[in-house]
């Protein structure tokens, strides 16, 4: 947020630099069961993002001291490939990746029946292969599909979706330029059935009205993305028959 510039992000017709309306998503494609070894996997293309998610587990948690007697632990690891961004990213987790892994783990934990698998871990690996803003929310959307593919019992899917503010206008699903030069970014994860909020972060500058308007916009978009998730899951199992 907040790099000052003269770049106009919304034109005279109210359209964004990629031609979208304020409440319009970028094109999204999802595919379930894309990896052989993982217990569950999914791939998502969301605008210029290309992200793969894999699930291993439930399996005995190691090292032993991390085990919890009454539930499974959810360990998500968010990772960006060195070539996923313009300037090569050094491999291994940086501070941002550590934080994102933590909040993603917590968001996914909210839907999983963790009490069914004591002393185990459910490991979720999210690999960003190509990044174009909104990687954490696209990653959560894919991770939730991979969990479903692994047969992990959940009370809902999780939908990731970002909203924000650019040129004073509340918009859905920021792209790279909007993320860099915009005024606020609000990554969210939503349980579409109950409309509960599982992940909520924000940075920038927004009034109460702008922020609540943005959250409502994300809630609506979550319903659309949820339908795509269901379609993607059905597609895999239709093909198997």
């Amino acid at each position: 947020m907040g790099i000052k510039s003269d770049i106009r992000l919304i034109d005279d017709n109210g359209l964004r630099i990629d031609g979208r309306l304020p409440n319009q998503l970028r094109p999204i494609k999802m595919e379930v069961g894309v990896l052989d070894r993982a217990d569950g996997s999914a791939y998502i293309e969301w605008g210029g993002n290309k992200i793969m998610a894999a699930v291993y587990g439930p399996r005995e948690a190691y090292p032993k001291h991390v085990q919890e007697a009454e539930k499974a632990i959810i360990r998500a690891r968010y990772s960006m490939a060195p070539f996923s961004v313009d300037e090569r990213k050094r491999p291994g987790p940086d501070r941002r990746a550590v934080e994102l892994s933590k909040v993603i783990s917590e968001a996914l934990e909210s839907v999983i029946f963790v009490e069914k698998y004591p002393r185990t871990s459910i490991d979720v690996y999210i690999e960003v292969l190509q990044a174009d803003a909104g990687t954490r929310v696209a990653g959560i959307t894919a991770a939730s599909l991979a969990l479903a593919d692994a047969g992990i019992p959940m009370r809902d899917l999780v939908v990731g979706c970002a909203v924000g503010k650019i040129d004073g206008v509340v918009v859905l699903d920021l792209n790279k330029e909007e993320d860099n030069y915009g005024e606020a970014d609000v990554p969210m994860a939503i349980l579409p059935r109950t409309r509960e909020i599982a992940l909520l972060q924000m940075d920038g500058d927004m009034t109460y009205e702008e922020l609540t308007g943005a959250i409502e916009m994300a809630m609506e978009a979550a319903q659309t993305i949820h339908k795509m998730q269901i379609e993607a899951l059905k597609r895999k199992y239709v093909e198997v028959e």
């Binding site: 917590e106 972060q201 500058d205 927004m206």
Partner: peptide, 24 residues
């Protein structure tokens, strides 16, 4: 009275109404 940052944590959820209340 502007909002500059938010961070949700732990494995539970909030409803939209709860978030509105918390912001206020």
């Amino acid at each position: 009275g502007h909002i500059n940052a938010m961070q949700k944590g732990l494995g539970g959820t909030f409803t939209y109404e709860e978030v509105q209340k918390v912001i206020n």
